[in-house]
Amino acid sequence: MPIQHINPPGLLQFDAMSQVVVASGGRTVYIAGQSASDVNFEVVGGNDYYAQSVQALRNLRTAVEAAGGSVENIVSSTVYLKNLTPEIAGRFLEALAIACEGKSFPPHAFSLIGVASLAGADLLVEITAVAVIDAAVAA
């Protein structure tokens, strides 16, 4: 069964997001919060929301690939942004546009949540996700 992306009339529509994602017939994978940390828990990207977002999305890609999938299999994510403002949200959306080797991260259902802090004092971004692997992606 395929992963189906739906953007119903009457709801906000933009290229980076699907309002509804329907998935069946595959393994469900739950991915822990991915931040801009490297394997030594050192922050990549300094105090830059864009750079940290790119690294967190790359770490998310690494995690889903370790489970045997790809970013196209991600059906939902929750993005936690420290001290969220419209400008900070914009920096994250800019990172989405280039996070996959210069290409846009595939659309999926996601929410942006503002938080006061994350696990590390220097972390600005954390992303949890759900993927359905072994399901075909419908065009």
Results as ranks from 00 to 15, higher is better:
42 E>D: 15
59 N>K: 05
29 V>W: 09
7 N>K: 12
100 C>E: 15
71 V>N: 08
112 L>I: 15
105 F>I: 02
129 A>M: 07
47 N>T: 11
87 E>W: 05
68 G>N: 08
83 N>T: 14
35 S>K: 04
75 V>T: 08
12 L>T: 14
84 L>V: 12
100 C>S: 11
3 I>Y: 05
73 N>D: 14
111 S>N: 15
35 S>W: 03
70 S>C: 07
122 D>C: 05
5 H>M: 13
87 E>A: 15
118 L>M: 06
105 F>E: 00
53 S>F: 02
30 Y>H: 14
66 A>L: 08
16 A>L: 11
5 H>G: 05
59 N>I: 02
73 N>P: 08
107 P>F: 07
49 Y>P: 00
26 G>D: 05
16 A>T: 09
22 V>Q: 12
108 H>E: 04
127 I>V: 07
62 T>K: 13
52 Q>P: 04
113 I>Q: 04
87 E>R: 10
129 A>T: 07
63 A>M: 06
123 L>G: 00
104 S>H: 03
133 I>E: 01
92 F>Y: 07
60 L>R: 04
115 V>N: 05
126 E>Q: 10
139 A>R: 12
92 F>Q: 00
4 Q>I: 15
57 L>V: 05
53 S>K: 02
139 A>E: 15
92 F>S: 01
15 D>K: 13
58 R>F: 06
31 I>D: 03
109 A>S: 15
49 Y>M: 04
126 E>P: 01
38 D>F: 11
24 S>H: 13
126 E>K: 03
130 V>P: 03
25 G>N: 14
99 A>E: 04
7 N>V: 12
126 E>T: 02
112 L>D: 00
116 A>M: 11
85 T>Q: 07
3 I>Q: 03
5 H>S: 12
17 M>D: 05
134 D>S: 13
32 A>H: 14
41 F>L: 12
135 A>K: 04
84 L>Q: 08
20 V>L: 11
81 L>D: 01
27 R>I: 11
29 V>Q: 08
133 I>K: 03
13 Q>T: 14
63 A>T: 07
56 A>L: 05
85 T>G: 06
132 V>P: 02
57 L>W: 04
21 V>S: 01
